[in-house]
Amino acid sequence: MSWSALDWGILAPALIAGLLVLATHVPLGTQVLDRGIVFIDLAIAQIAGLGVIAADALGMPEGGIAVQVAAVCAALLGAWLLTWTERRAPEQQEALIGVMFILAACAGILMLSSNPHGGEHLKDLLVGQILWVNTTQLVWLAGVSALLLLAMWLGLVQRFGRFGFYGVFALAVTASVQLVGVYLVFSSLIIPALATRAYRGRNRHRIAYGIGALGYAIGLALSALFDLPSGAVIVWALAACALVGSRVLGSAVGRTQ
């Protein structure tokens, strides 16, 4: 363990990226739990990742506008399919989300099978490269997050019915998955929301944000100190913070009853 590893020149941008991801994923996470479609983010993130893989297979410049367009189009197509399946077979929606996830994952593996760097690309998609985010990526994520939050706050999402929710979800996940990976996208969406599910007060989202921010900060610090993969450590840190937070909130709710 080396305290000199805590280089905030590297860790601070990563923490900012995590906070920006939480900005949209916390409110969306509460809706996901209420709808009972927990694995939607895995499916949408995997579909967006499939768009990135397809763009790379077609020779498009890595990280370029064409790749972003491919990821967004793939995610919105997935959102449209989920809107259609919810209308036609709402009782099977969670199972269909799982099927979409596994189909997208297998399609990605097949597309990367002839790529000599396929394993590395797949790892980056799942675990992400949060320590290597740059200013351009942060500005892009901040802009998308601000627009999505404004749309949710103004109630514009509800005007588009079922597709409004799935579409916003697709855009939020697409903006974050290339920075932090599928695992952190899922964790950011579900873990803080799950930790605060028993709390129905007005400050639920703020508490969830706090739990998520603390998890990111602790995870990044521990990963630097012990030279461990950041994404995996952050997931565990989020889970630990959520466990403690849920116990504290449970005690607080119990005292008020």
Rank of each mutant, 00 (worst) to 15 (best):
residue 1 M to H: 11
residue 1 M to G: 11
residue 1 M to T: 06
residue 2 S to A: 12
residue 5 A to Q: 07
residue 8 W to C: 09
residue 9 G to L: 12
residue 12 A to F: 12
residue 12 A to D: 06
residue 13 P to D: 05
residue 15 L to P: 05
residue 22 L to Q: 01
residue 23 A to I: 09
residue 24 T to I: 04
residue 30 T to N: 01
residue 31 Q to L: 12
residue 37 I to R: 00
residue 37 I to L: 07
residue 38 V to G: 01
residue 39 F to P: 01
residue 41 D to T: 05
residue 41 D to E: 11
residue 41 D to V: 07
residue 44 I to V: 15
residue 45 A to M: 07
residue 49 G to F: 13
residue 51 G to I: 09
residue 51 G to V: 07
residue 55 A to E: 03
residue 59 G to V: 13
residue 60 M to C: 13
residue 61 P to E: 03
residue 64 G to D: 05
residue 65 I to E: 09
residue 68 Q to S: 07
residue 71 A to C: 09
residue 72 V to P: 09
residue 75 A to N: 04
residue 75 A to S: 05
residue 77 L to G: 08
residue 80 W to D: 00
residue 82 L to P: 01
residue 83 T to K: 02
residue 85 T to V: 12
residue 87 R to F: 06
residue 89 A to T: 14
residue 89 A to Y: 04
residue 90 P to Y: 00
residue 95 A to T: 13
residue 100 M to E: 02
residue 101 F to M: 12
residue 103 L to T: 05
residue 104 A to F: 04
residue 106 C to R: 07
residue 107 A to W: 04
residue 107 A to K: 02
residue 107 A to T: 01
residue 109 I to Y: 00
residue 112 L to I: 13
residue 113 S to Q: 08
residue 113 S to G: 04
residue 115 N to G: 02
residue 115 N to A: 09
residue 116 P to M: 09
residue 122 L to K: 05
residue 122 L to M: 14
residue 122 L to R: 08
residue 123 K to R: 15
residue 126 L to Q: 06
residue 129 Q to M: 14
residue 131 L to S: 03
residue 134 N to R: 13
residue 135 T to Q: 15
residue 136 T to C: 09
residue 137 Q to W: 14
residue 138 L to R: 12
residue 138 L to K: 10
residue 139 V to P: 11
residue 139 V to I: 15
residue 140 W to P: 01
residue 141 L to G: 03
residue 144 V to A: 10
residue 145 S to D: 08
residue 146 A to E: 08
residue 147 L to G: 04
residue 148 L to I: 15
residue 154 L to D: 10
residue 156 L to V: 08
residue 159 R to E: 12
residue 159 R to Y: 12
residue 161 G to S: 06
residue 162 R to F: 12
residue 163 F to Y: 14
residue 163 F to C: 09
residue 166 Y to N: 11
residue 167 G to L: 13
residue 168 V to C: 10
residue 168 V to S: 08
residue 170 A to I: 13
residue 172 A to W: 00
residue 174 T to L: 10
residue 180 V to L: 07
residue 181 G to I: 04
residue 182 V to T: 07
residue 183 Y to N: 03
residue 184 L to M: 09
residue 186 F to A: 00
residue 186 F to Q: 01
residue 190 I to H: 03
residue 192 P to A: 05
residue 193 A to P: 04
residue 194 L to I: 04
residue 198 A to Q: 11
residue 198 A to K: 02
residue 198 A to E: 10
residue 200 R to C: 10
residue 200 R to H: 13
residue 203 N to E: 15
residue 203 N to P: 03
residue 204 R to S: 06
residue 204 R to I: 10
residue 205 H to C: 11
residue 206 R to E: 08
residue 208 A to P: 04
residue 212 G to Q: 03
residue 212 G to W: 00
residue 213 A to D: 02
residue 215 G to W: 00
residue 220 L to Q: 06
residue 221 A to T: 15
residue 222 L to V: 15
residue 223 S to W: 03
residue 225 L to K: 10
residue 226 F to P: 13
residue 226 F to N: 07
residue 230 S to A: 15
residue 231 G to Y: 10
residue 232 A to K: 14
residue 235 V to H: 01
residue 237 A to L: 11
residue 237 A to M: 07
residue 238 L to F: 01
residue 238 L to R: 00
residue 246 S to M: 14
residue 246 S to A: 12
residue 250 G to T: 15
residue 251 S to N: 13
residue 252 A to K: 15
residue 254 G to K: 15
residue 255 R to F: 13
residue 256 T to Y: 10
residue 256 T to G: 06
